[in-house]
Design a protein around this nucleic acid. Structure first.
Lengths: 240, 240
DNA sequence: TAAATAGTGTCTTTAAGACATTATCGC
DNA sequence: GCGATAATGTCTTAAAGACACTATTTA
């Protein structure tokens, strides 16, 4: 297979292509999984890859990520956050191809398995992966776990109204650790991200759980107070 | 000026070029500044721009950022962290040119003014800036301020041995807020990033200040404890 | 000894961690 | 009533914020 090359109209070597690669994560059976597609053609045929692809000159890289994700998996309309750009000219055997990666957390049920060849893999038990996608997935997982408590990134995975135990199990699946139930509740309540509705769940054994909802379903940050030294209040005088 | 274009060996449009653009920040006179160079040629002649430039096919984007920074400003050997990639095909009037930005915090004294045309500008009082560099600078400033207390990113700006008031004034210049002196001291000591040397400063009015040093001068994170709910200890049983 | 600067101590409030206790369901 | 599940209360520790006070220098 010949190496893909490009030259621009000024006579300089140009990158052969850009790719946009979405890292789509979802909790499944209590563990964090990533969505991969099997490469059916060389190079790296048979390996599993992120569902990304080449960028056109009339779209934003994020749009490319969205489009490729839909084409390859049927999943669409997810909120993507830019993750990292991998620019080593030797990272792809096909040529100088730079990858811009994006991150999303979705509900695994959004994927209609059977309709595509895409599959979920636990992030800590990956198959043989193409290119440098292993590192990309690791970067994505780390970013997601870092943001979990500082944003409402988990919002999309919970129903409109949810219970604390439900939210806790979700957070546990994403972070990979177990939380103490009452402290979890206190923390999530104090985060300012959620609000209690007056209602409770019915028809299940055990004490009925109260229902909560997210204050803001669009991407938002937790207003939790800063952990850096207090700035001095207006009017006060700093001593030196 | 004709638009720069590129086609790859498979016949597809390719990006005309990649640029790597360093956002070099430094505290100066108590305010955060950014290093810019004046564009001497079209497009956007006369505007001020980040000291970046086109990437070659035999270097990593970070190396490009380093090289361009040195060529344009004489500044070299700084620690660069990838910031964001700007991929809108219309962001640059010359053509489809994608920019990968990098962030560094340095000592303003490293720049030999007069030897270059590069100049420092306060980040909150910029001149007319080229392309989308205003947004890039804003993103860089935000990232720096977010990292200040979670890393030793400010290390490079302090001498080998420094005093608490010195460190405090530095942190204040970067963050743009004023800290209460004794709380600042406690916070920085507890961060684990610094260690007291036994010595004190001499020859200045006032009580002599004690000298500290950073435990680690290479990029590092503060080991401050997590602010997310405690994971349950091994051996304990989670109640549901 | 006064002015200037740096450092210490400490009181109060808030958040975090651990865990015992109480509440409310289906059966 | 019993098992199951959810929610509340609270005791303890640690961190953060505010600020009074003490210490050590130069001029």
């Amino acid at each position: 297979m010949p190496r893909l090359t490009a030259v621009n109209s000024a006579g300089y070597n140009a990158p052969a292509a850009l790719t946009a690669d979405p890292v789509i994560l979802a909790p499944l059976s209590g563990r964090l999984h990533v969505l991969l597609v099997r490469r059916e053609e060389p190079p790296q045929q048979g390996r599993w890859a992120l569902p990304g692809g080449f960028m056109n000159d009339d779209e934003l890289p994020e749009q490319t990520a969205q489009r490729k994700l839909t084409e390859k998996t049927g999943v669409g309309g997810v909120y993507l956050e830019q993750l990292h750009t991998y620019g080593d000219p030797n990272r792809d055997p096909r040529g100088w191809i730079v990858s811009i990666s994006y991150l999303a957390l979705i509900d695994a049920a959004v994927l209609h398995e059977g309709a595509t060849t895409a599959r979920w893999f636990p992030v800590d038990d990956l198959p043989e992966v193409a290119f440098d996608h292993g590192a990309v997935i690791a970067d994505g997982t780390e970013r997601l776990r870092g943001k979990l408590w500082y944003s409402n990134i988990a919002v999309g995975l919970l129903p409109e109204r949810f219970t604390m135990p439900q939210a806790r199990r979700l957070y546990e699946a994403i972070s990979g650790v177990t939380y103490e139930a009452s402290n979890f509740r206190r923390e999530l309540e104090q985060s300012g991200l959620v609000r209690g509705t007056g209602e409770v769940v019915k028809g299940v054994p055990g004490r009925p759980a109260m229902l909560y909802e997210f204050v803001e379903r669009r991407p938002a940050w937790s207003p939790r107070r800063s952990r850096t030294p207090a700035a001095i209040r207006a009017g006060a005088v700093a001593r030196s």
